[in-house]
């Protein structure tokens, strides 16, 4: 079989597989319980955050431990606008994403002048700062108890309250973001990102020498990642029905990075594998302890898995098929 024929056959196979998976996901709520749906919703929401992080870390090579801050800013903005300003919830969601993007743009410029570990420290300090402010600016954010009883997302007069409503919403949002990211990665922006990734063999000097405005591309991706997180935060707040500082402490930023490292930052699918694994572990443990205190064990186990992955499989789980010998497309395409 010629190479062209093989590629075409593979394309049909991929299309077929894609359609099958798509149908499966669409019909899922008919077969599974609300509980499972809520797990999938959480996986989907966290995946949106890690997807942005995957672009930023895995492709552009910039370490940001600030995603939890943008998750929170997006969430809080959405809630505050709905609650205190009477804005239409979908509008609040959009505004939350936009505002977070602006914040990321303004802060990204000075932040991204740093690289490597200093950048990580600044972003994690920023995440901690935002979480602290959220807990202290009582007049705005409701302090430690957060905000609740705000108008939630609805379509027409039909308010989204059931799990499967949010399941489809998250599925749609994640799919859109995933496709957008995939297009981004396979384009000139993807090449420019990789050109700037010092960890994987890129070179900022060389990129600049051929006309790439490296600061601009890093800033663009930073803002994109922040917006992804903000959208996730807004939907999260609407789903849970409240928002409080605990949902996005600096620990979450670290967990998001842990998720993408475990999932594999070189491949967009890693952004989904990471959260899936984390949530599976969390839920399995709470099943185990039957309502006891799971938090400690889930951290221990998740942390140990992270260590193991780091030592044995630094590329993350997404790299496993390639390591085991399955040949796929070139260039790190998902």
């Amino acid at each position: 079989m010629s190479r062209g024929q093989r590629n075409r056959q593979r394309s049909w196979q991929k299309l077929g597989a894609g359609v099958a998976v798509g149908l499966f996901l669409l019909l899922l709520p008919l077969w599974v319980s609300s509980y499972i749906q809520s797990i999938l919703i959480f996986i989907g929401l966290y995946s949106m955050v890690t997807l942005g992080l995957c672009l930023l870390m895995g492709y552009a090579g910039q370490i940001s431990l600030g995603q939890s801050a943008f998750f929170g800013i997006g969430g809080y903005t959405t809630v505050i606008l709905s609650l205190k300003c009477g804005v239409w919830p979908w509008g609040s969601l959009a505004a939350g994403a936009f505002l977070t993007g602006v914040v990321a743009y303004v802060l990204g410029k000075p932040f991204l002048r740093l690289t490597g570990f200093p950048l990580a420290v600044v972003t994690v300090a920023f995440a901690m700062l935002i979480a602290i402010l959220a807990g202290r600016l009582d007049f705005l954010t409701g302090g430690h108890d957060g905000l609740t009883n705000f108008p939630r997302l609805s379509i027409g007069t039909w308010e989204l309250t059931k799990d499967f409503h949010y399941y489809y919403l998250v599925l749609a949002a994640l799919s859109l973001l995933f496709l957008f990211s995939k297009n981004l990665v396979r384009s000139k922006i993807g090449r420019a990102m990789r050109a700037v990734d010092l960890f994987a063999g890129g070179s900022e000097t060389a990129a600049q020498s051929v006309g790439v405005n490296t600061s601009e591309i890093k800033l663009k991706i930073f803002v994109i990642a922040a917006v992804y997180a903000a959208v996730a935060g807004g939907i999260y707040a609407n789903y849970i029905g409240n928002i409080h500082p605990g949902s996005f402490s600096a620990w979450w930023s670290i967990l998001f990075v842990a998720m993408i490292v475990i999932g594999g930052s070189g491949n967009l699918w890693g952004a989904i594998i990471g959260p899936a694994l984390y949530i599976s572990i969390r839920e399995s443990i709470s099943q185990f302890t039957r309502g006891g205190i799971p938090a400690g064990w889930e951290s221990v186990i998740f942390g140990m898995i992270l260590v193991t992955i780091l030592i044995l499989l630094p590329g993350g789980i997404a790299e496993l098929p390639r390591k085991l010998g399955f040949r796929g497309d070139e260039g790190g395409d998902p």
């Binding site: 967990l255 205190i293 938090a295 064990w297 221990v300 942390g303 140990m304 260590v307 780091l310 030592i311």
Partner: peptide
């Protein structure tokens, strides 16, 4: 460095337990 991050997760979890 990430290993130390992971270990800090493990340690704080362990202390919580």
């Amino acid at each position: 460095i990430l290993i130390t991050v992971a270990l800090s997760i493990v340690v704080s979890g362990g202390v919580y337990i």
